[in-house]
Design a protein around this nucleic acid. Structure first.
Length: 272
DNA sequence: TGCCAGGGGGCTC
DNA sequence: GAGCCCCATGGC
């Protein structure tokens, strides 16, 4: 079955909803600035925006740029093949059947770096609030009334005090330094590096350690390394209960599996 | 090496 | 409602 199709420059139709679970994607911990609407979600990625809703057996995306969001939601990729490759791992059937509609997004590099620095030792509710304040204060108001994620240029004059006011806490000095470092980084140079070398480079950014660098490598469109699994405190607890954690971690699609597990254990544990 | 640094929200008890 | 922890990292 065709997964999805660009209908026109502002519209995408998704036909295979077994590969696109709207609620699961929104709650999978990759996108934070999503807003529940009457029948779906509004989201912002960088300066682009989209409304998503379900209509019969389709998901409709009405957006600022269909090409951008086709790539953002990784719609070129067949996730059934990825799920099939997990079949050899035992005891994953429940996880896959509940999380199998999640996709790894192709987010904006700058937005991902800042978002995950702010996420450090923070809870999702709280840092989402901070990210929205950041957008409202330094981003642009878009046609749908939401605010874009600020660009590097828009944050270039932001001070430690500015970041503290919106709740960044002790991460504020890291953010000031990170913005400065990011204005000098050559992305196309480091995009060719191996996982290990790339992680080392990313960890040079202030506020970025191994965990945040793994999130950047997995979620940002310039890298999109699906074999990287960021291990957060949640997944660490889960891995302690699993017999063979290395089967999960040394996998070509470890990042996808990690997202499935994150959603399964964190989101569903709250709702079941 | 081990500890500490915002603060607020959600969770457990 | 008190006490704990949080999608960690940098610096001492």
């Amino acid at each position: 079955m065709m997964i999805a199709k660009i209908i026109n420059k502002n519209t995408i139709n998704i036909y295979d909803i077994t590969q696109f679970d709207l609620d699961a994607i929104m709650h999978s911990g990759q996108v934070f600035r999503y807003f529940k609407t009457k029948n779906g979600y509004d989201i912002v990625s960088g300066v682009e925006y989209a409304s998503l809703y379900r209509e019969d057996n389709k998901i409709i995306i009405i957006c600022s740029d269909a090409e951008y969001f086709f790539n953002y939601f990784d719609l070129h990729r067949d996730y059934n093949q990825i799920k099939y490759s997990f079949n050899k791992i035992k005891d994953l059937q429940n996880v896959i059947s509940l999380s199998g509609g999640i996709r790894i997004l192709n987010a904006d590099f700058f937005e991902i770096v800042l978002s995950f620095i702010i996420s450090a030792n923070n809870n999702i509710k709280r840092f989402t609030k901070t990210l929205n304040l950041l957008a409202e204060k330094y981003g642009d108001k878009l046609d749908n009334g939401l605010f874009s994620f600020p660009t590097l240029k828009q944050l270039s004059k932001t001070t430690e005090e500015d970041f503290k006011i919106i709740g960044c806490g002790y991460r504020s000095p890291y953010l000031v330094k990170a913005v400065e470092q990011l204005s000098n980084i050559n992305l196309s140079n480091i995009a060719a590096l191996s996982n290990n070398d790339l992680s080392k480079e990313l960890c040079k950014i202030s506020g970025v350690g191994p965990k945040v660098s793994a999130c950047i490598m997995l979620f940002s469109k310039i890298f999109h390394r699906l074999d990287i699994a960021p291990i957060d405190t949640w997944l660490n607890k889960v891995l302690c209960d699993i017999n063979e954690p290395n089967l999960l971690l040394n996998n070509k699609y470890a990042g996808v599996l990690q997202q499935y597990l994150f959603y399964y254990y964190q989101y569903l544990s709250k709702t079941l």
